[in-house]
């Protein structure tokens, strides 16, 4: 028998040319449902003008990233029980540092362009993936097997990053992590892109990106590794390699 809670969903609203505001909706929910279900319920039964992004509902597409009670979450896998309680108000807002298109949907175009700039890999050979428990010895034949990149391009890392808050020029955690994944040694053209004013050195090791990443990218760790790669490449250039 499923539990029933009554919560208030307080959602950010903003249409083009309007000032932002918050609307409250009272909802009956099952606490083991997801935040995205609650948002969808508001759209379906309360206000068809509520705009939000969603697609796969299983943490693969990265569309449903939002701020839930101020913290970046992938709402399709964020269980209501973990973020609110019976009778409480659940605040839902769009990601930070992206222009709001409508309500909870933000313009991700800039972000996708940055990923393109570093030619982020969507799929990669399994032997190159930095996965948690890799096979101890890959067989060269295993390179034929490919896997999806861990990065969902959800943009939550950009939302959480204190540096991205101050400039839209900063490449940002996900593109830098993608550059690390491609590797400076294998792709030397990336060096000048990441070793630049709005690139790698803007990162100040806050690790907010790692804290909010809903996948296994760990952008903070990758940016640290990218520093090592860049220093290695620069020293290599200096000594004429």
């Amino acid at each position: 028998m499923s539990e029933k809670w009554t919560i208030t969903l307080r959602t950010y609203r903003q249409k083009e040319g309007e000032a932002p505001r918050y609307d409250d909706f009272t909802l009956d929910v099952d606490p083991d449902e997801y935040v995205l279900d609650a948002v969808e319920r508001v759209w379906a039964f309360h206000d068809r003008s509520l705009c939000f992004r969603h697609a796969c509902h299983h943490s693969t597409c990265g569309a449903c990233g939002m701020r839930v009670n101020g913290v970046e979450k992938l709402t399709c896998i964020t269980i209501l029980r973990d973020v609110t309680q019976n009778g409480a108000t659940l605040k839902v807002e769009p990601l930070r540092n992206f222009p709001v298109v409508s309500d909870l949907a933000v313009d991700m175009g800039d972000f996708y362009k940055k990923n393109e700039m570093v030619d982020a890999r969507a799929v990669l050979p399994v032997i190159e993936a930095e996965i948690e428990h890799p096979s101890s010895a890959w067989n060269p034949n295993d390179a034929q097997y490919i896997r999806l990149s861990d990065c969902l391009e959800c943009g939550m890392c950009i939302s959480a990053c204190p540096v991205a808050a101050t400039t839209s020029e900063y490449l940002g955690p996900a593109p830098l992590a993608a550059a690390q994944d491609r590797g400076i040694r294998r792709n030397p053209e990336l060096l000048n892109i990441v070793d630049s004013e709005d690139g790698l050195w803007r990162c100040h090791s806050a690790f907010e990106c790692t804290a909010v990443c809903p996948s296994f990218v760990d952008p903070g760790r990758r940016i640290m590794d990218l520093r090592k790669q860049v220093i290695g490449a620069k020293l290599g250039q200096l000594f004429g390699k």
Binding site: Q14, P20, P94, R96, N97, F98, P99, V100, V106, P162, A164, A165, T166, T167, S168, Y170
Partner: peptide, 12 residues
């Protein structure tokens, strides 16, 4: 425009 990065947000 709201919600966009700005240098002033360093106060954040």
């Amino acid at each position: 425009m709201n919600n966009q990065p700005s240098a002033k947000k360093f106060l954040g």
